[in-house]
Each structure stands twice: as structure tokens, then as C-alpha cells.
Design a protein around this nucleic acid. Structure first.
Lengths: 210, 210, 210, 210
DNA sequence: AATGAATGAGAATTCATTCAT
DNA sequence: GATGAATGAATTCTCATTCAT
């Protein structure tokens, strides 16, 4: 089993539990298999066998193998997004909100290695990802992040002499890079430490100011 | 033809011109094809045809298709490394050296899209990359970067209250993320602008200090 | 068609008719093709074409080309074994039973050249045969033969100053060598004559006793 | 190194030492490789590498890969034949001569596993063997054996109511089968024991005579 | 006597995918 | 909601072999 976990390490229940059992089993099977190998070397036969269904059933619920991957990713993203919204609602001040969001984002990778694998390594190489629902959700998430940065600029807590998009880029890059090695080499990621480091650098810079 | 270009957009000549002609043609063919599609959808038949040799010759010079990819990557990396060494030699002060290096790194991606494709998108998903010579060169490059950051800390120009590795991570993450979109969507990357943005944020932070 | 024949030249019906149609066709196709050429020069494409199925189906039912060969062999062996059991049940005295068994064994080769080809020429060179089910059946058969010889020794009809295993070895060697030339050069094997010769020599020896 | 050994475990020197060094090295390389795997899974590239020459050189001295195998076999056979002639010259009485020959034949297999592999497992499946020089040498050897049996019949020491060819068949079959298992599973063959067993059975029969 | 470079042609095997039931 | 049977189409990789030098 590879359930989806929140940043208290608790298993998430999805609202979309209305999946037929076969579909649920297939998605769980792919999640399980992604713990151990890359998507390309997972065959539909393997997925079906792990799920305890026939290969044909995969094509009942998913357009093709990549669509399955994207739907699995979308489930994770829907959680990440609702988490981000909750975070912002429960915090005051753009910088604090940003810090909270960075922490949640890193936690998501830390507790859901499969999510990290998919988003950081598996989907990007193939053009079809960029027209998937999952990608649309990513855009939604990053827009949300951008809006937060812009709000910070207006507030006066975030520098306004740098493009908000450049700031977003750097934050996301820092997060991803910090989690990439852990993901690739299956090493533990410590969300507290990593988010502190990222925030220190991004918020205050590395140069010694005099 | 897809020659390797430096940051003045000039074609690089490799010292290792001692390749047999067939090998050179094969590597050039892969570079050319990578301009237009992902590695997985490039067939060995296509590579051979483009190179004007037979498929079998690929397997004389490369262990398999991925080894070819890694060797192509290694050629780019050998240039990136020598460039980094030159940069540091020609500049004074860790921060300035770092800025120069960031600029060169981004330029390398900007002028050699194929290099960016390979390093940012194609090799990471497959475990065999991490035991390749190319990966060893990447490690060499990042060690070099780390040493530079440590030197900055000693000099007093770079904060020493943050792990040098965390700083490196953030820099590399920022660079990669900044170049990733351009690489994926084949959009131009402006090395001056991108490196300025990255340096502003990383060097000075995003928070308004009072 | 290359059905399996008993020593009255009658076609054998297998109990294991529960094969899916494609699997049956593939096995029949290989039997047919083995009438005319060696296993190595039979391609999977040829097998599929002869069977009227696609090559891929072969790999649905068999692990690889050799596994197909082993499964075809196993079908023959399952018949040989049941034949041997029948022979022994219907005859009295170890020597007579042995003679009957030798006759049946030689008949099996005589009437099923493909079986002879496979067992005497095709499987032995490759180590994987020795971990196949087919090989396990051969062991079962030769154990049965050994038990028969031991019974003869206890009865007093077979010399007990020679290892039963040595006797078995010599009998099997004599049978195989006698059938080998016929198999290789596609010459008819006369079961009556060959089994008489083998039995005369093995049972009574070649030296003139005085 | 895989030299050819006689039945005193001494290394044989061939008269045909006039081979050019490359040819000798290639034949030795094949002998060495055959200690560990089947002929089909030995590649010409491997042979060349082991021999320390280029693949092209193999085709200078041998028509093709199988011709190389046959020439290696022929060297062994030339020794077996001269050994057989020596044996007969030094012994009196057809049965004694036969016994000596059986012993030498088994010793040859016992001390030269590669020879056994080639003759018992590798050459038979392929029709081209039967038009090779090596096969002609085998025929010469078996004719020699047949003549010996016929001489025994005339002498009165060997039964004349059985075809000499049937006797020869049984003897060769017994020897081969006795050595086959040892060859396949790389188990030691004890020439004294095996030849005793074979001779006991073949010479005196297995039935208890009253 | 020997080599470096290159090839032709196949050949097994893989895998996602479909469809009738 | 699910399956058993079968396929199409490709794709990597292998390997013996050749030839100019």
C-alpha cells in the first residue's frame, strides 16, 4: 500500500472516493510500483498483476498508461493545493505564509516519495504532460504562489524590485533541488531542516551585508 | 550539425578529436536529433541513418543507447568544467567568481539546448546514469562550486551560518528551474537577465530588511 | 500436423487439452517445423506464421523460445512415462518388463522423430534444460527404470554384482546411440530389430562364454 | 590454457606444430572458452579477445566459426586415433584390445572435457559437421573399432550371432552415456571404474545365466 | 601475418493496446 | 464492472563476417 500522507504523516482520505474498486486498485498498484522503479520500466502487465485485475481494465479507466500516471499525480496535487490554501488561511503576513507553504511543499515530497518521483522525474520529459489535467493543477498551484509573492510586495514585506516570477522560480527551484537528491537516492528528507535552509537563503540572501 | 558552443556563441573544438570517424558521426547525430525530440522517441535506426552508419556500429562504440547519451553529455560537461575553471582564474573575490560561474552555467544551457535537455530532463530518471562517467563529472563540477562557496565563507563575503551545501543546492536549483521552462518549451533563455535575477535573489535575499 | 504417436502408430490424445487454442497451435507448429530443421534455425517468426498467430502470443504462453521447446518435449515425455507404467503393469518378470520398456522407448523414437531430435540433439547443450520441468520428467523416467533394474536384482534375474546405475546407463546409452544415427540422417528406425540387438547384447553380453 | 592430455594426464605435443602463432592462439582460446560455456554462446569477439588477436584473423585461418570448432575437434581426434592404434599394437586378443580401447576412449573424455563437450554435445546438431574432416576422422575411428570386433568374431572370442555394427553401437553408446552426465555437469569421470562397468556389462551381459 | 573499421541482416523479445464476451 | 485471448508494430541489440590497409 502506498497511501497519500499529509505533513503530520497521517493518511489522507480523498473526497473522490467514488472511484470504482478496480480503478482504485490500479492507481494504488502504480503508486506501489513507483516506490521501486521508474515509470517506463513498469509494464501494464505488472500494474495489472499488482492490482489483481486484468490489463484490459486499465484501459477502461485510463486513456493510456501515461494518463494513469497523470491521474495518480493529480490526486497528490489536489491534496497539495488544498493544503496550500489551508496554510495561507491559517497564517498572517506574506512572508510567514510563504514560509508555511514552503514547509508544506517540502513535507509533501518528504512523506510522499512517489509524488516527488512523478513530479520531479517522470512527467516532464513527455510533451503530453503539458496538456494534462495534472499540469493544469500545477499551474493553479504556482499561480497561487505567485499571487502570494505579489501580495507580499504590496504589503512591503517582499522586495518589489525583482519580478515576482523570478522569485517564484527561485523558490521552486530551491525546493525541488533540495528534494531531488533525496528522491533519486531514496534518502530521507527532513522538512524542518530543508525548509529552514531554503528560507534563510531566499529570504535573507547569502551575501554578508555591511 | 549541432556543435558545442561557448558563451560567446563560438564553436568549441574538443581535444578528444581522436575518436574514430564513425563514433564522432554517431555522437553528432544524436545531438542533432535531440534538438527535436526526446531521447526515448529517438530510435537507434534513426541515429544510425542520420549518422550515415549502420546501427551495429553504435554498439561497437557504446555499450547501449543510454551509454551513447551519457558520452554525449560527458563531452558537454568537460567543456562546462574547463569553462568554470577559466572563470574562476580570471576573476577576483568569491562572490564575483560565483556570479561569473552562474552566468557561464546559464549561458551553457542557453546556447546548448541539447545539453540542457539531456542534463535536466533525460538522464535523471534512469539509475544507470548515476554510475556513469558523466555523473562523475557532474560531481566534480558541483564539488568545485562547493569549494568556491566555502572559500567565500572564509573570506567573509558569504554567510557562514548556513551550510555551504545548502547554498549550493539553492543556487543550482534556481539556475535549473530558471532554465527548465525554456528548455521544455523551447523558449529562448537570456543569460544576462536570468543570471541577474538569480544573483539578486540569492545574494541579497527577498525580504525587505529594515 | 505432427501428432504424437504410440507404438501402434496411433495418434495420442492428451488429457491436457485444456490449453488455449493459440498455445496448442504454437506447440503443433514447432513440432511440424522440427521435422525439417534444427531448432536454432527455426525462427519465432516462422513458428508464429506456421501456427497462424502473432509472435507476441508465443511470449504470452512461453517464457522464451527454449521454454516452448521444453514444453513440447514435456508433452512427449508425459506419454513416454505413462507408456512405461502401462508396460510394466502388463508384463511379468523384471527382464521381460525391461525388454518391453526398451522396445517402447525405441518405438517412441522410431515413431516420433521430433521427440528424438529434441531429446537427443536439441536440449542437452543448453544449461537451462536441466532446470526445466521436462528434465524433471526425464529424471522421473530414469528413476522408474532404475527401480525396475533393482527389482530384477532382488528377484535374482539381474546380476547384482554391477551397480544398477551402471546397468541403466548402458541400456540408455545403447538405445540412444542406436537411434541417434537414424535421427540425424532421417533414416527409418526398426524398433523390433534395434530392440532385439540391444537386448541380446545387454542381457547376454558379447563374450563367448565357455 | 587448455592443452590436450593423454591418459597419463600428460600434455600432448602435436606433430602439426607448424600452425602460425595466431592460429594456435585462436584454437587455444576456443578450447579455453569451451570449458565454461556452450559454443553458441561464445562469440567471435570473445574468442579474438581471449586469443589476443583481432576477429578478422579468425577468418584468415578458418572458413567460419564452425570450421574453427571442427578443426579444434580434429586435433583431439587425431590424438584419439593414434592412441587407439598404439593400444591395439601393444595388446594381444580382440577382447583385451577392445578393453584397452574402451579405457583409452573414456580416459580421453575424462581428461579432456572440452573434447567431450564438442563431440557429445556441440557438433551433432548441425548438418555441416557431417561433411567436415573431423567427421571423417570419427568414421575412421569407428571403422577401426568395427574391424577389431570383426577380428574378435573370427578369432572366436566375440559372439558372431550379432551384427558387429550392433555391438559397436552398444559399446559406443555405453561409453558416451557414461561420460555424458560427467561432461554436462562437470563432474569427474573415473576411467578405471567406468571402463570396468562398461566392459563387465557389455562383455558378460546382465542376465544371470544358469 | 595481422588489424581497424565497419556492416548486413536478422532475431528474439517487449509492450501497450484492443475487442468480443 | 471485468476478463481472456490475441495482436501490431516496433526496437534494441547481437554477431558473424568482410575488406582495405
Amino acid at each position: 500500500m502506498t497511501p497519500i500522507l499529509n505533513n503530520n504523516n497521517q493518511q489522507i482520505e480523498f473526497g473522490d472516493k467514488q472511484h470504482p474498486p478496480g480503478k482504485t486498485k490500479i492507481m494504488a498498484a502504480l503508486r506501489l510500483l513507483l516506490e521501486e522503479k521508474e515509470f517506463v520500466s513498469i509494464t501494464t502487465a505488472e500494474i495489472a498483476k499488482t492490482a489483481g485485475v486484468t490489463e484490459a481494465l486499465i484501459y477502461k479507466y485510463f486513456q493510456d498508461k501515461r494518463d494513469l500516471l497523470h491521474q495518480v499525480l493529480a490526486e497528490y496535487l489536489s491534496f497539495l493545493i488544498s493544503q496550500a490554501e489551508t496554510d495561507v488561511r491559517g497564517t498572517k503576513g506574506a512572508l510567514n505564509q510563504l514560509r508555511k507553504l514552503i514547509y508544506s511543499h517540502i513535507s509533501m515530497y518528504a512523506y510522499n516519495r512517489v509524488f516527488a518521483r512523478i513530479l520531479l522525474l517522470e512527467v516532464r520529459n513527455y510533451p503530453d504532460y503539458f496538456s494534462s489535467d495534472a499540469y493544469r493543477m500545477v499551474k493553479r498551484y504556482t499561480s497561487f504562489l505567485l499571487a502570494l509573492i505579489e501580495k507580499g510586495s504590496e504589503e512591503g514585506s517582499i522586495r518589489s524590485d525583482i519580478h515576482a516570477t523570478a522569485i517564484r522560480q527561485t523558490i521552486l527551484g530551491a525546493i525541488e533541488h533540495a528534494c531531488l537528491a533525496g528522491t533519486i537516492f531514496s534518502r530521507a528528507i527532513n522538512p524542518d531542516q530543508v525548509s529552514d535552509e531554503v528560507c534563510q537563503i531566499i529570504f535573507r540572501g547569502i551575501a554578508v551585508h555591511d
